[in-house]
Simulated scan of single mutants.
Amino acid sequence: MKEILIGTSGYDHPELKGSFYPLNLARKDFLSYYSTKFNALEINSTFYGMPTAERIKSFYDRTEGRIKFSIKLTRVLTHEIDSQWQLKVKEFRTALVPIVDKNALASILVQFPESFGYTQQNRFYLSNLLKELEGMPCVVEFRHKDWIRESVFAGLESRNAGIVFCDMPQLKNLPDGFSSRTPFIGTNAYIRLHGRNQNGWYAKNVYGEETHRYDYEYTIEELKSFIPIISNAQKEGKIVQLYFNNHPKGTGFKNALELQDIVSKL
Results as ranks from 00 to 15, higher is better:
K2W: 13
E3K: 15
L5P: 00
I6E: 05
I6A: 02
G7D: 10
D12V: 02
H13C: 13
H13I: 14
G18F: 10
S19V: 15
F20D: 03
F20Q: 00
P22Q: 00
L23E: 13
N24I: 07
N24G: 00
L31N: 09
Y33T: 02
S35W: 01
S45G: 04
T46N: 03
F47L: 10
T52L: 01
T52I: 02
A53V: 13
R55A: 14
I56P: 01
S58E: 12
F59R: 00
D61F: 06
D61K: 13
G65C: 11
I67W: 09
F69C: 12
K72M: 03
L73W: 01
R75K: 15
V76S: 12
E80Q: 14
E80I: 03
I81K: 08
I81Q: 10
S83W: 12
W85N: 01
L87Y: 11
L87F: 08
E91G: 15
F92L: 02
T94W: 08
I99R: 02
D101F: 01
K102I: 01
A104P: 03
A104G: 07
S107L: 07
I108G: 02
L109G: 01
V110I: 12
F112S: 06
F116W: 14
G117C: 04
G117T: 12
Y118L: 07
Y125T: 05
L126R: 05
L129T: 06
L129N: 08
K131I: 09
K131E: 15
K131P: 05
E132T: 05
M136V: 02
C138W: 00
R143Y: 06
H144C: 03
E150C: 00
E150L: 15
S151A: 08
V152W: 09
V152M: 15
A154V: 09
A154S: 12
R159A: 15
R159P: 12
N160D: 13
N160W: 07
A161Y: 00
G162Y: 02
I163N: 04
I163C: 07
P169N: 08
P169E: 04
K172A: 13
L174F: 10
P175L: 11
G177N: 05
S179E: 12
I185S: 01
I185R: 09
G186I: 08
Y190P: 02
R192P: 00
L193I: 14
N199T: 11
G200K: 10
Y202F: 14
V206G: 03
G208Y: 13
E210A: 10
H212D: 14
Y214S: 07
Y218E: 07
T219K: 14
E222A: 06
I227Q: 00
I229H: 11
I230L: 13
S231C: 08
K235L: 14
E236Y: 09
V240G: 05
Q241L: 10
F244V: 12
N245K: 06
N246D: 11
H247W: 08
H247N: 14
P248D: 05
K249Q: 15
G252L: 10
F253Q: 03
F253A: 04
N255P: 09
L257H: 09
L259D: 06
Q260T: 08
Q260C: 13
I262T: 05
V263R: 05
L266P: 08
L266Y: 09
